[in-house]
Write a protein that binds this DNA or RNA. Sequence first.
DNA 1: GGGCAACGATACCGTCAGGGTATGGATTCG
DNA 2: CGAATCCATACCCTGACGGTATCGTTGCCC
Lengths: 288, 288
Amino acid sequence: METRELRYFVAVAEELHFGRAAQRLGIAQPPLSRAIQQLERRLGAVLLDRTSRTVALTEAGAVLLTEGRAALDAVDAAERRTRRAALSATGRTGGPGHPGLVLATKASASNELLAKLLDAYAAEPVAVPVEVILCGPAEQERLLRDGRADVALLHRPFDSTARLHTEELSTEGQVVVLPAGHPLTARAHVHMADIADLPGLPLPRWPKPDGTYPPGPGPQVRDHGQLMQLVALGRACAVSPESCRSRLPDDLAAVPVLDAPKVTTVIAWPPHSRSRAVADLVRTAARL
Amino acid sequence: METRELRYFVAVAEELHFGRAAQRLGIAQPPLSRAIQQLERRLGAVLLDRTSRTVALTEAGAVLLTEGRAALDAVDAAERRTRRAALSATGRTGGPGHPGLVLATKASASNELLAKLLDAYAAEPVAVPVEVILCGPAEQERLLRDGRADVALLHRPFDSTARLHTEELSTEGQVVVLPAGHPLTARAHVHMADIADLPGLPLPRWPKPDGTYPPGPGPQVRDHGQLMQLVALGRACAVSPESCRSRLPDDLAAVPVLDAPKVTTVIAWPPHSRSRAVADLVRTAARL
DNA sequence: GGGCAACGATACCGTCAGGGTATGGATTCG
DNA sequence: CGAATCCATACCCTGACGGTATCGTTGCCC
C-alpha cells in the first residue's frame, strides 16, 4: 500500500464525499474514485458502501481509517525527525531555528517543574537547544506520534501513556480552586461530593481528542488559564493539581480535595527513540 | 514520503550496498540510486555517505532507518488488519481460514493460562474463532505492530510492554530447573548466587530481537522446549516461571529461586485497537 | 605501478500508472 | 417530471519509474 492511497482513502473516509475529498486533496474527483476502487481491489475488501447519493464506511473501512491514520502519522514522524536530524547535524551550534529537541507540554500547566528541568538540563555539558511547544490537553501524544515533538510532559491519569516510554517525575494531590471568599474556602479540606454540584459553580468541560466538547453543563475551556479566569468571574470551579497554588492570584483560593485522584507528572518519549538528547533529558528529569 | 521510497531506503540502509539492495527489491541498481538521491533532495538531508567502494549511514540516515521501519510496520498493519476485517465480515461463520482474532504467545510458554483463557472465551456467546501463533521470545511485539497478531501474551520483565495496552493476568515466582538427582535438588530453595556458576550447567543464551545471540558461555536456545531438552542432557540449567513445574518430565527437577525476579503474565494489544473481539477477549482474561 | 574488478552515478529510452476533461447513470427533491 | 447532485466510466495525455548501456572512481593484487 502506498501512502498516497492511504491519504486518499482517509480523506474520503473523513469527508464521506468524493467531491469534497478530491477538492481537499487538490485533485479531480474521477481519479479519486478510481484510486479507491483500485485500493479495494488490491485489498480484496469493500471499504465504502456508496450509492449515488451517500457514502458510508464498512467495517473494514473503519479499520483502515484508524489504522491508516496511525500509519500516516508514523510516516510523517519519520520525515520530520529525519529533517530535524539533518539540520541539527549540520548547524551544530543549533540556532533557535534548529532545536535539537522539541518538548511538548500542556499550555498553562504548572511550569515550576518544567523550569527546573530546563535549567538542570541546560547546565549539562552535552545539552542541545530545547524548543517548548505548548499544546491543548491530551494533544501531546499526537505530537510525539507524528514527530512534531520528541519528548512530552504528561499528567496521569488524564493523559494516556500507552505506546510511550515514561518516567515518573512527581505525584501530587489536587485542590479545588474557588473565588476568594466563597464559603467553602473556610474549610481545611473538602471531598469531591462537596463540590460536585456547587450552585453556580459547575466543573468545566474539556475538549475531547477530536476537538469537540462533551454535552452537559459547565463552561467549555481550552487551557488552565482560561479556567482560572472563569473561576475568578464566579462562573466555574476547578479541581487542579496542588502545585497551581504557587501562582494563584489574590482573587482565588484553593482548598485540598482529599479524595480527588492523585496527579502524576511523567516525562514521555516515543518507544523507539534512539536520540541521545532525549535520553540525556530524561536522565536529568529523573534526577530532579 | 511514499512507502516505496521508504522500502527502498530501508533496503539500502540494511544492506549498505546498492547492488544487493536492488536485487532484494527486485529492481535494477540505477533506479534505486536515483530514488535515494531524489529522497535525499526532497528531505534536504544526506542519508548515506557513499564512496564508490563503501556506503555508510549518516546520523539522519540512522534516524530514518528506525523511524522508517516503524512507519512501514504501521502501513503493513493497516493492510493486514483491513484484509482480515473484510474477511471476517463476509464469512461471518469464521471458518478456520478466517480467524476473527489472532493471538501471539511464546512457543513453549506455559499453556495452562492460555488454555483456560481460550476455553473461557470460547464459552462467551459473542466469541469469534481465535488463531494462536507461537513465536520466538520477544517477537510478540513485532507481530502486534505489523498486524500479524491482534493480541499477545507477554511476560514481564522479559518482554517490553511499551506502546501497548496491557492487563495483568498473573504473577509467579521462578524456579531453577535441573537434571533430576543434581545435588541442589535436595534443597528446599536456592538463591541466584547458588546457580550463577554451576560447573557444567551454564544458563542459556536467548536470541536478541535481531535474531543473533549475545557472546558468552552457555548454549543457544530458541524456545523453552529446547532448553528443557538441554537441561535433561545435563548441558544447561534454566530459571523459569514456576508454572512450568506442572508439566515437568521425570528426569528434571525444579527448586524455587527466592531472589529471582517475579514473572508477570500480561495480555497486550495495540493501543488504537477498536476491535470488539479484542475487548471481549481482554475482559474475559481479566476475569480469570 | 598498472591492469582489473567492484560499485555507484549518469545517460537515454520505453511503458504504464495516475491525473485531467467530458459524459453517463442513478437517486433525490421540488 | 425536470433539475440538481453525485459517483462511475470513457478517453487522452503527461511524466514518473524501471530497464539497458556505459562511465568514473576506488581499492586490490600481481
